[in-house]
Amino acid sequence: MLPWRLATATASGVVGRRTGLAGRRTSWSPLQRAPARWAQTFYEPDERGGYRSFIEYENWYDRFRLSQIKARYRWYLRGFRTLGQELRKYARLDPMEYLRHGDVRMVHDLRNAAEHDSWIVTADSDYDQGRSWGEFSITQHQTGVFSGILNQEPVKDGHTKAAGYVNLRAPFVLRSFDRIDLHDWQGYTHMVVKLRGDGRTYLLNLNVPGTFDVTWADTYNYPLYTRGGPYWQIERIPFSKFFFGHKGRIQDIQGALDLQSVRNIGITLADGVDGPFRLEIEYIAVEYDENYTEEFAYEMYGVVDKYH
C-alpha cells in the first residue's frame, strides 16, 4: 500500500518554516487535531493518528492552476529520472558493502545543500493544544538550527491537561515517485550526532512503523543529552540502548531495534522546562564499532505475573 499521505508531507518541505503561535500562520487553514476520544481507544484513523496536515486543506480546484499542472509535470519527470537511476543501479550489481571498524555513514549531513529541504517542525500550537513554537533554519556555516520557545501552558478548552512539545522531523528517504524507503543500517552499531545544544535534554526518535494500525506509532527512543555552550559535541549512542515506545509511552515488552526497518529520525523537545531552546545539528550518521557487541541493553527475561 502506498503511504501517499506521508508522501504529501515531504512535498511541503521548506527550510525555515515557522510553526506554532496561531498568529504566525499566514493564510492556510488551521490544522486539525484528533478528537479526544481517539486517544482513549485503539482506533487509528490514519498514520498520523488523526492529526491532519495543512496541505490537505487546499481547495480541490487549486489542482487545476497552471503552477500545479507544471509542478505535476515536473514531478513525473523527476520520478522517471530517479526510476531510471534506480534501475541502472540494480542492473550494475554492486558488490555487497562490507564494514570495517570505525566506518561511518552519513544519514543526514547538513553540509550538503541537498539535505536542507523537508525538515519539518511541529508543535502543540499547530493543533491549538498549546503555545510552543519552533523553527528549523540553516546557518551560514551549513548547519541546521532547531530553535524556538517551549511553553507548557495548556489551552483552556476544558479537555487539554498538559502541553509543551516541539518536534523536528528529518526528511524521509525517497525512492522514485516519492515512495518512502526505509533506512538500511544493518551491521552498524552506533548512531552519531554532531550537535551543539543548550544544556537541555532532547529525545531522539527512530520511527519503525509496522503494517498494522497498532504498530503505526511504534518508535525507538533515547534521550539526547547536550552539554550547552559553544563547543561542538559528538554524541555516540549505541543502537542497543534505544528503548521501545508507542506514542511516547515506554512499552512493557521490549526488544532490540531492527536496523533495517527505521523509516525516519525525529528529535523531540518536551523536557518540562519553559523557555527558549536551540539545538544546532551538523550531521546525523551511523557508525560501526566492532568491539561493541551488546544487542539490547535492557532485561529480556519473561515475567511470571503478566499483570505487572
Partner: peptide, 11 residues
C-alpha cells in the same frame, strides 16, 4: 508565505 507554495505539488 503561501505564495511560495504555488509550485509545491498538492497530492
Amino acid at each position: 508565505s503561501t505564495k511560495k507554495y504555488d509550485d509545491v505539488l498538492i497530492h
